[in-house]
Design a protein around this nucleic acid. Sequence first.
DNA 1: TTATTGATTTGGAACGTTCCTATCGAACAA
DNA 2: TTGTTCGATAGGAACGTTCCAAATCAATAA
Lengths: 337, 337
Amino acid sequence: MIDIARAAGVSKSTVSLVLRDSAQVKGETRQRVEQAMQRLGYVYNRGAASLRAASSDFVGMIISDLTNPFFAELAVGIEDALYRLGFVPILANTNEDHERQAHVLRSLREHHVAGVIMSPARGSDAWSLASQLPASIPGVITMRRMIGSPLPYVGPDNRTGSREAVEHLLRLGHRRIGYFGGDATMTTQQERVGGWRDALAGAGILADETLVFETLPTREGGRQAVDRALALPRPPTAVACYNDIVAMGATRAFASRGIIPGVDIAVVGFDDIAEAEHNAPPLTTVNADTRFLGAQCAESLLGLIRGEDPAGLSFLGQTKLIVRESCGAARRERKAS
Amino acid sequence: MIDIARAAGVSKSTVSLVLRDSAQVKGETRQRVEQAMQRLGYVYNRGAASLRAASSDFVGMIISDLTNPFFAELAVGIEDALYRLGFVPILANTNEDHERQAHVLRSLREHHVAGVIMSPARGSDAWSLASQLPASIPGVITMRRMIGSPLPYVGPDNRTGSREAVEHLLRLGHRRIGYFGGDATMTTQQERVGGWRDALAGAGILADETLVFETLPTREGGRQAVDRALALPRPPTAVACYNDIVAMGATRAFASRGIIPGVDIAVVGFDDIAEAEHNAPPLTTVNADTRFLGAQCAESLLGLIRGEDPAGLSFLGQTKLIVRESCGAARRERKAS
DNA sequence: TTATTGATTTGGAACGTTCCTATCGAACAA
DNA sequence: TTGTTCGATAGGAACGTTCCAAATCAATAA
């Protein structure tokens, strides 16, 4: 910067003013400085600048499982919005590992991030999170609500979405409806299973808790749930799944045992990832406008950074049931017509 | 740091030495300093430290399309290796947008990144890239080879992988084999189509270039390719696809027209994304050990940072054909037995 | 001509580290 | 006792910005 100043015949203060295009430099001077920058191939040093500032332009983006297309889509939504707002995202994929998460959080602090957007690793609790993410740094939680945390939460309306999916199965005539995937310690699971109960209760059916099969929220988890469900004397005739990849694992496992999803059994997912449409059979699922949810995370964080009240920054996204083939609705219609 | 020094009754130089755990501080002094850090809740400021250093511990990770599960998996591989090596990844999803890419590259320079790993946006050329990524900053290119660029390239052996996939179709008895997706300006496309030609040539079949349908490498692209292929007087009986998502789009489009993939037409993909197995029907595809490729990107970058010769840092990953159902092999076997 | 004013520009401290060059003290040899 | 040496610690400049207070300049008013 001093070189530029010398070349343009001004002081470094003036160069600094030009850099931040302040209105108080004369047009002619500005030009001279800009030409010098051009000529000398000057590159601004953001790190040095943030040495004085309260924080940098970095935002930590902590994703619990980026290989889940749902989270990839969410990450893209966040990343895009962040760039638009002038922030630079630091990515961390914890892969559900707490140690990794703690490590990353520490690293982010050392880098003086302006804020953090995170989907906590499974089993994170508000208390230990609080010790790792000091209140002084703005943070928004996404997808996995932390009870007891004052941080804004951004996520879909799990309970309503899940309820509507199960209501759809009820409308299709199913009475013995199971639930696959997730684990009871996760709030997301509680909310989604809650929706399942709500729907059954609404139809006057006693929720049979033995039909809830908890497993890892992965394709493999879906497979295992199928094994366990089929071992039952009276297996369910329909299942709602924790998410689409569980549903994908489940449809595959059913099919490989000769039970055709959408015909012999109804399956619905949650998330509406891009692949859902291409599953065998295409998945009936709950869309939550993932990309938009990501953008909303960034917006809420910005609000926090601006000092707005955290209480007003939470966001519950609306969901929408997408009916495809795995629930058997198409087949029914065909039969009816 | 000065506060710590005061609290521990030493100079800031000593604190600095403790921070970088140098062997030259006495054990007792070290303890005193560490306790003071604990007590005062000291947080290291990496930004300040890198003010003096040649570069920071950041590495730019430029991904052309993170919503493609293949790239998500690649990103996870890179991210994981980067963390292991002590680097912190800055994520940028360009979404194939050149302007975004240029913008990001500039931002990374301003942040003094130690290096950049990038899968260039479609249509990037070595020349314009060189002007955006100065030779002074280590960079490795992944997945999309830039002819004319001296930067190390890490990617799968597209040509061989593609050839083996097509050879598999030939072995299944197909003679009229098409190619779906990609665009001729991309080197990846050239290599994969090259494999298609190699295989046909190896079987003594004249490659019919009208059977190459270029489209966007997306699900939608796969659908469009199907439309165009079926408009032909003599459509192909088998197709190799640019990647799995094109294949997913294609299988779906065929199925919706009553042409059953794996029965009426053979389809193979490339990448072996996690979803391939769950497609309708499960995709026969080419596995390239994506996660490992990602780790390799980080390794090559590390080599570059250490000053090794770029020429020795390129890496071509081996591929492996994964036979599932979309090629019809399973059905043939069943028929045979 | 001389203030006065507002628009520009400037010098230097500060941000939190690292690194280089001292300095200090103790142990040892002569 | 007096150097000498070595281990441990200290002091200050430097990294590239921003920000504050002060200086300078040009134009206008008195």
